[in-house]
Computed example of a mutant assay.
Amino acid sequence: MVQFHEHIISDLLEDPNGGLVVLSSGLALHKLIASLLLLHHPSQGTLLLLSASPSQKSSILSTLQLQNPNGEIPNLPSEITSDLLAHHRLSLYSSGCTFFITARILIVDLLTSRLPTSAIAGLIILNAHSLSDTSTEAFIVRILRSFNRSLYIRAFSDKPHAMVSGFAKAERTLKCLYLRKLHFWPRFQVYVSQDLERDPPEVVDVRVPMSAHMKGIQKAVIEVMDACLKEMRKTNKLDPIWHTLGKRTKQLVSDLKTLRKLLDYLVRYDAVTYLKYLDSLRASESFRSVWIFAESSYKIFEYAKKRVYHFGRSDGGKLVGQCKSVATKKRKLEDGKKETDSLPMGTNSGVVLEEVLEEAPKWKVLREVLEEIEEEREKQALSKEELVN
């Protein structure tokens, strides 16, 4: 067990009511949970693990098995499923062992009085960032707390960015779980950084460059965001009281959220999906949104189209302005289509749609990295063969 895991466990054990632990991602949450399970004794009562994903279950079980590969694990958790009969589940609840269980099964057994609340020592809730005031887990905690005051609740999350979404997310999570202590363990915490620096990994920073059209979209989105912020300052001088704001100001806040999504999706989506998303925004928000009517908003749509296709003229079967570096397809458009109405056409020339289908830069970089890894493996294999011979 690493040192900062020991400190987390000691902090949790100090408070009999439990606490909410938020770790940075990649700090081996499954090993921390496995260490907590090893400290549990059947004489304390039954311990229930709630809201664990299948991958988290397998990671916790494999960690417990690795810690004791030869002997039997005294407190290896099993799973309570809906296939078990009611009287069988009742006996398991009273056994004092550790069990994985879903919120749906647990709430049904609580409401039908099939679960002896006095036999439950505590709850370990994973993925606490997904909880809310109306979630089933919050209802379960409320019922158990009302019948068993000595019950402890230990909630965990390794998605710190999800704990800042919405308004006072961490505070509301603590409130719905009836907890008072919040434990933050970022990577720059003293004990965490010391453990990570003992055996630091070799990190290679690979920067993915944007294409020219992607840079144009990014610049245009930032310009539109700046225009929305200027308009917001002009209308209400950033009054912090939300319910007193006007309709236009609230729409500007919503537009800023949409524009942030556009920046995020620019590097996540491919060119076709991004253009499709923009078209859906134009159809759904064209009448009420403010950002679409901004001066630079048309650039976003224009650059997004250029990443997928563009029009050209063919003179005698030869395409004018064809890009040699991009593999394209050509197809004639019918004379009656709307796309051709606004384009200049000669008597002997037709409009040609050139499909660009710009590749996302991240896939090119990923391909280069994989090729580099393959080359390194081949070199290592050759060097081993030379040593053997």
Rank of each mutant, 00 (worst) to 15 (best):
V221Y: 00
H7W: 06
R313W: 00
R172L: 13
T46L: 11
D226L: 15
S135I: 03
D335Y: 06
V352C: 08
L48W: 00
L37S: 03
C228D: 03
K175L: 14
A168F: 08
L262F: 06
H243A: 11
Y277F: 11
H243G: 07
S35N: 09
D239M: 13
L32I: 09
L13M: 14
L278G: 03
L106H: 00
L229I: 07
R180D: 12
K318R: 08
L387N: 05
I300K: 02
V204L: 13
S349A: 14
I222E: 12
H310Q: 09
V365Y: 01
N148Y: 01
Q218T: 08
T258G: 07
S211V: 05
T273F: 11
F301G: 00
A121N: 04
H243R: 12
D239T: 13
E79F: 02
L256C: 11
K364W: 01
Q44L: 15
P201D: 10
S349K: 05
A381P: 01
L281R: 06
L366M: 14
E295T: 09
L333G: 01
S59C: 10
R260F: 08
I9W: 00
R288M: 14
R104G: 05
A327Y: 05
K338A: 09
K250M: 13
R367T: 06
L179Y: 01
E368V: 05
Q218K: 11
I300Y: 00
F287H: 09
L174C: 07
L47T: 02
S55Q: 07
S349W: 03
L92T: 02
E334Y: 04
L61Q: 04
T340E: 11
G122Y: 00
H243D: 09
N75D: 09
L252D: 01
I105N: 05
A103T: 12
A170L: 06
G71E: 10
P42G: 06
L343D: 00
L131Y: 01
K299M: 11
F311N: 05
A294C: 10
Y298K: 12
T112L: 10
D341W: 09
K337T: 10
S383Q: 15
C97Y: 08
K234I: 07
S296K: 11
M225E: 07
A162T: 02
E223Y: 03
P209V: 13
Q56H: 03
E14D: 14
V290W: 01
L36E: 08
N70I: 11
P186A: 08
R187I: 13
G336P: 00
L366N: 07
E376Q: 15
R313L: 10
H40K: 05
V2S: 06
L259Y: 04
P344V: 15
A52V: 09
F167H: 11
L353I: 11
H243Y: 12
G18Q: 04
R248I: 10
S94G: 03
E202D: 14
D205Q: 14
R104M: 13
L115Q: 00
D15C: 14
Q251H: 02
L90W: 02
I107T: 05
R331C: 11
S113Y: 05
L387H: 07
L131K: 02
I60A: 05
S59V: 04
S113A: 14
S10H: 06
E285N: 12
L229H: 03
L48S: 02
